[in-house]
Simulated scan of single mutants.
Amino acid sequence: MYLTRFRLNTARIGARKLLASPQRLHAAVMSSFARVPQVGEGPRVLWRLDRGGAAETFLYIASPGEPDLTHLVEQAGWPQTGRWDTRDYESFLARLAKGDQWAFRLTANPVHSIRRSSEEPTKVTAHVGRRHQSGWLLTHQEKAGFRVIETSQERRLLPEDEQYALTPKGDRYELVVHEQRQLSFTKAGQRKPVTLTTVTFDGRLEVTDPDALRRTLTHGLGRAKAYGCGLMTLAVV
């Protein structure tokens, strides 16, 4: 496994076109590999956009093979001075241990299935409120091999029976939900547009099942993985 970071030059038309279309960016990412693993073969190619200050936009890619981003440098980077940074990911994954604590970031597509009556088929619908979006992550954490760390008692600002809801000042969990985006694009050969709601989670976690977390980091979490969702990355707290 490899983890790659590439900075996009947002002043270039090519970069802006890629940022405007998850479908185009997905195709550009997959073009970085001579052989793309098929879904079900094992770890998959995952990617995520991180938008920072000073117009910095980074593309992160986790992949079973090492990517070649020459085409992205030429189209959306700095052809004379820009490169990309690829690191071996296997050694990091192998060191994960139960009880470890990490800061994490995840962009995901939190959804749930609903229906208005028992006669209707279920419909997949996006969570749009921060309370339900955070609840989606908390529901998935055990199977994904981690738990979101709870805020220490002295730092909690919400009454005990309301601590599940997030507020700007603090809450029960060390978790922030931000960057909600509504994406709409048309896939090749289809007329009906694809619509997605994505959010970014930042927080702190504790490893509860290293093997399950390794699978989460290499296979992704949630839906819409082809369109920039599901890649969780860890950093030193």
Rank of each mutant, 00 (worst) to 15 (best):
K17H: 08
A108Y: 03
P22G: 11
L69T: 00
T216L: 06
S91P: 11
D88P: 07
H127N: 02
G230R: 09
W47V: 08
S184K: 13
S134P: 05
L138G: 00
L217S: 10
T216V: 02
D68F: 06
E150Y: 04
E179F: 07
V177N: 05
D209C: 13
E66K: 15
P121F: 08
K225E: 06
V124A: 05
R35V: 09
A27D: 15
M30V: 09
S184T: 08
E56W: 00
H127Y: 10
T139G: 08
H178W: 06
F92R: 14
G14F: 03
R48W: 01
F92Q: 10
W84N: 14
A224R: 13
G77H: 01
F104V: 09
A103V: 03
V177E: 04
P193R: 00
A235P: 00
L19V: 03
L18N: 12
G53Q: 04
V236N: 13
V207L: 07
A11L: 06
S91A: 15
K98S: 12
V73A: 07
F146R: 14
K17C: 03
K98I: 03
V237K: 15
G230M: 04
P159I: 07
H178L: 06
E206M: 12
V39H: 01
L138Y: 04
L106F: 12
K169C: 00
E150G: 04
Y60P: 03
L158M: 13
V29S: 12
W136C: 13
P210A: 05
A94F: 01
R83Y: 09
P193G: 00
P64V: 09
Q101M: 10
L8A: 11
D211F: 00
T86W: 08
H26C: 08
D211G: 01
A27P: 01
H132Q: 05
I114K: 04
S21N: 11
R130N: 01
A226R: 14
Y227A: 04
P37M: 09
D161P: 07
V128A: 09
A235D: 12
R87K: 11
R12M: 06
L8P: 10
S91C: 02
L49W: 08
G129Q: 06
Y2K: 13
G203E: 14
A224N: 02
Q182Y: 14
H219P: 01
R215M: 00
V36G: 05
L59Y: 11
L69G: 15
E74F: 01
K192Q: 04
L3S: 00
T200S: 10
R172I: 12
G220C: 15
V207W: 15
R87F: 11
S184H: 01
E162T: 08
A27V: 06
P159L: 06
